[in-house]
Design a protein around this nucleic acid. Structure first.
Lengths: 351, 351
DNA sequence: TATTAGCACTCCATTCACCCGAGTGCTAAC
DNA sequence: GTTAGCACTCGGGTGAATGGAGTGCTAATA
């Protein structure tokens, strides 16, 4: 890329972008000639800008207006940022992630912190049972026709369901079932617990009662049910701060996406599947996998709660987003979340 | 109120309101003189309108514009609607409330259905443990330093938590604890399970180990923890369909309220506490308990999931909302939700 | 050869005047 | 009590004028 742009052009491009990030207004040659460290006349800068435009890094919204970075321009800028040696991290304001609490509380809080620190819309997806193993399972008779099944997965995610049965199983049977389930399934990953295994279990149970078969089916279902991805969001209304996104049309689309969450889910799976750059990914404009956000930029990161539980944190904002700050902030929060499960099991009271 | 308005004025007021509901434009005398069943000249109607304005039921946004209903006007209109003998209910489109499913799924779906049927923003609050009793409780040792406590409440709400302990309890102890907890707490309401009772339990446990004491405390905590009210929303972006609410300022405020949910929670408690009119309440403009919605109307209803579990469904829209339709729809859904728990435990497969 | 000063040109955004139409209030006639 | 008629008001829309920011190009300069 050194062949593509001269040093000076790099500087000018960066100046254009930085200026545009702040003001949101097309930036003209005069402005640049004053602000840039290299002291050039506006005319010279105009020439360079014409070149940059030819190469597609910037463009004019209309003749006789200043220049605006194109997607390609942003891309170059972001790539340069990423190439920078290890950036130091920013401090997060208001980070009080109560690590002791339930996961969902922490994540909700995380989304809020992120929004407060960046002034963009944010999302945090709950960790998904990736390579997750079963840690404990237990059936209990609640009353004559209800059984509650409780399953603890690695990472202490708890699933449960009430199973309705038409005939009482009796203490003994329940006990036997529990034993069977625990000895067989314990430590297995979800993928390993497939239909074949369940079928074998049924046989092994030695009883051909329909009830037991039903119960086992229910258990299998609980384990596999893709808890439709929980996603926490915050600051969606921040988009109103950016005129280019807050006309009715765009605002409605974006906010809808945040409300329905379906599209955010797609974003999450996309992020989780493709892993690069320390888990930080930047989608500019059309690059984003979610159509409704083609006028936005999306920055995402993957966090790891240990034991294969991975989730996504993300920021959605205008294309003229403060990428540098956002990436730093995201990285910080990522570290913060990653750290949560490194705590020794015993350490609880410590601040 | 008959003393206040003549029959003819009533008719005219209603005509104004209905016309305004549809168009959103101030309605003038000429329009009315053509549309109303009573055939009067525009001049006559103008006189009546002037009177109605003096009494505060309508007003002009500016001289030489048509009239718009005031809050007082809406109020009268709504009161008349409410007074109407039993209104028949509307059919809901897309109602497929999977009754078997978990409560939260049903409620999410309910919010969606409501939004789809009305074109307004909707919210559904999860039932709150009002006069809720404990049905089943069980501790299980997950591994050396973790116990999972599962509690099933009436209405099949399941709570659970992992309790960290510093020493293993041993099977026997756990068994004893379970026995104790179940025999003592079963069937009790949350209010009855207070600190005193827990203290007595601790004694009764006969063991003075700190561990057991800790566990019991944790149990008490789970039971009492006010799951911060779950609220499901849908169709928040519907407000963009109404220009009077979709300027940046208002839109941001309203949508914020829907995102943060704090304010909706206030609305819910308000609704649950004051009960009138078959549980249907209408707040017009300033009447609403939530400040951010002073330019909206809010219609809420209370549903009952049986066994003292009560929640709120609500619709937020512009003041020129189709009150009649909304109230009918709300009533229908309310019935629908109420009916869910009337199902015989055995009936499951039936449509 | 690279830079700069200067100038003509373009185009957007703002302002202002203007007009039109919808609607009113009032008065006088029915 | 109702209606016809008229003068008046006001908001919204249209079009022309204006100014400013910015450009591209050319010619002069280092």
């Amino acid at each position: 890329m050194d062949t593509e742009l001269t040093e000076r052009q790099h500087i000018i491009l960066r100046a254009i972008i930085q200026n545009y990030l702040e003001t949101g207004e097309p930036v003209g040659s005069r402005t640049l000639s004053k602000s840039t460290e290299l002291s050039l006349s506006s005319a010279t800068i105009r020439n360079e800008m014409a070149d940059l435009e030819d190469m597609g890094y910037i463009f004019q919204p209309h003749t006789s207006a200043g220049r605006i970075p194109s997607d390609k321009g942003y891309r170059l800028y972001v790539d340069m940022l990423m190439a920078d040696k290890e950036q130091e991290l920013t401090d997060l304001k208001n980070v009080v992630l109560e690590k002791s609490d339930k996961v969902d509380k922490v994540l909700k809080q995380a989304a809020k912190v992120l929004a407060a620190n960046t002034n963009y819309a944010t999302m945090v997806s709950a960790p998904v049972n990736h390579r997750n193993t079963l840690k404990f399972i237990q059936l209990s008779q609640v009353d004559a026709d209800q059984i509650v099944a409780v399953i603890v997965m690695s990472g202490n995610v708890i699933k449960n369901k009430i199973i309705e049965v038409d005939e009482e199983l009796g203490n003994e049977t329940v006990l036997k079932l529990n034993m069977l389930l625990n000895t067989t399934l314990n430590g297995m990953s979800i993928e390993e617990i497939n239909l074949g295994l369940i079928a074998r279990l049924k046989e092994q149970a030695g009883i051909h009662s329909r009830v037991i078969s039903d119960v086992l089916d229910a258990v299998a279902e609980i384990i596999h049910v893709e808890d439709d991805m929980e996603i926490y969001t915050s600051g969606a209304t921040n988009i109103f701060k950016y005129p280019e996104l807050s006309d009715k049309q765009s605002a409605q689309e974006i906010i809808s996406a945040f409300e329905e969450k379906q599209q955010l889910a797609e974003l999450v799976t996309e992020t989780l599947s493709s892993e690069e750059n320390h888990g930080i990914q930047v989608y500019i404009g059309d690059e984003t996998p979610v159509r409704t956000m083609k006028d936005c930029s999306v920055v995402t990161a993957t966090y790891e709660l240990g034991e294969g539980m991975r989730g996504t944190i993300g920021i959605i904002g205008p294309k003229r987003m403060d990428y540098e700050h956002v990436m730093k902030t995201l990285k910080t929060l990522q570290k913060e979340l990653d750290a949560i499960n490194y705590k020794e099991p015993k350490e609880q009271e410590g601040e």
